[in-house]
Design a protein around this nucleic acid. Structure first.
Lengths: 219, 219
DNA sequence: CCAGGTCCGTGACCTACGTCACTAACCTGC
DNA sequence: GCAGGTTAGTGACGTAGGTCACGGACCTGG
């Protein structure tokens, strides 16, 4: 059982009537995670979706040899693990906490009941899924057309967001997983940005000093 | 205006009430395409979705230099171009006919009206979108973890389907676009399968003679 | 029947990137 | 304090795969 107000702010539940949110909140449970705790693995059966309250969760595909391709990074307010609710299949990727985190686990049943009573609420769902498709499609195109340095530039801009100053919320190893390259290469790409003066670094924080060039390199 | 019965067989419309299908069919128009005709480009505004009646349509991202990454291959009965209906954004990729084809163009308005009257019909939509996500996710993982030869093996198995004997429905150039590699490399991968005796070739047709090995190579 | 296109096949390069190997800077917990 | 673990940085080296440059097999349409 979880407080309704935290769920009401999640996009997917935004249009739910109050009693729908309450119903979902009643069925939900909060869970605390340590770094590297695994919420689920690829192929697992799926019975619940998750909302991040605090911390960061990586959604990743893991190869047999342990290499990890990080598909998405989930932050407070984000929802993930919902696909099984809609097509009944198992997990298509694994979820692992990158830092101490807390999440809300919402069993599918409660959510499905609300959607079934009021299927117009599915409109935000299709929008969410469509945006997921656009993101993966773009990642696929990037993987084809951009080199490692370009993809690294893109990810850095992405992680920086609006502000020029930021700190990496992940290790370089994990960043490499997002970029789809080796840790060493990504490190060298970053070094090259520092050398070019497009990026500066002091005690663990980065600062983008030439956003324009970075953007050009990323496209 | 298009015959209702061809649309009634499309997954997405399968659960539509008869008069909903009729409404959609009334607004739809059929279009004939020659090889290489473009239905839409990336970034175009989206006002209609398409159903393939005949032929094959490639959904692809095109780089500035003309290189093409084929995301999906649409065959008779398949539906595509629907995403803009759900999130209002433009085309995320281009659509081009691979051979003389005929498609039905369905304006979003007619379809949206049906969904709005009966939003429970959105359930198949979320299932369709979820399956699209799973496909692209897998493609992304393959791009990370498999080499060109492995991805080529996978695509060949995919294009062969059930039967061992098949002919390539696309040129090697286009196959390369699906695999995400150069035409020459893909050709060499195929050659290697021939040399290994996993695959045979006679006058334009291929025959898989060692499916098991091919599958191992593709995973 | 030839001229010009498109497609397939294959070798000779070159380069981007992965792997390995090592050092240095940390951050813990004894 | 030091021992052991994780992260970051960087060079040396090998290789998968891209690019280029062919030739040959077709298929058109004049």
């Amino acid at each position: 059982m979880v407080r309704s107000d935290v769920l009401a702010e999640v996009q997917l539940f935004a249009d739910f009537p109050a009693e729908g949110v309450a119903e979902v909140a009643a069925a939900a449970v909060e869970r605390q995670l340590e770094r590297n705790d695994v919420l689920f693995n690829e192929q697992d059966e799926a019975h619940e979706l998750f909302v991040v309250l605090d911390g960061r969760i990586a959604i990743a595909n893991v190869a047999l040899d342990g290499r990890e391709s990080v598909v998405a990074l989930m932050e407070p307010g984000d929802l993930f693990g919902e696909m099984g609710l809609f097509d009944g299949n198992g997990r298509s990727a694994a979820a692992r906490a990158l830092e101490p985190s807390s999440v809300v686990a919402v069993p599918y049943g409660a959510v499905r009941a609300v959607f079934e009573r009021n299927p117009a609420l599915l409109w935000p769902v299709v929008a969410l899924l469509a945006s997921r498709i656009r993101v993966t499609d773009e990642a696929l195109a990037d993987a084809m057309f951009l080199d490692v340095t370009g993809r690294t530039a893109k990810r850095l801009l992405d992680l920086a967001g609006e502000s020029d100053e930021f700190e990496l919320p992940v290790t370089q190893e994990e960043l490499a997983g997002m970029v789809g390259a080796s840790r060493e290469r990504v490190n060298k790409a970053i070094s090259s940005f520092l050398r070019l003066g497009w990026l500066e670094q002091e005690d663990g924080r980065y600062r983008i000093t030439n956003r324009q060039q970075m953007e050009i390199r990323a496209s």
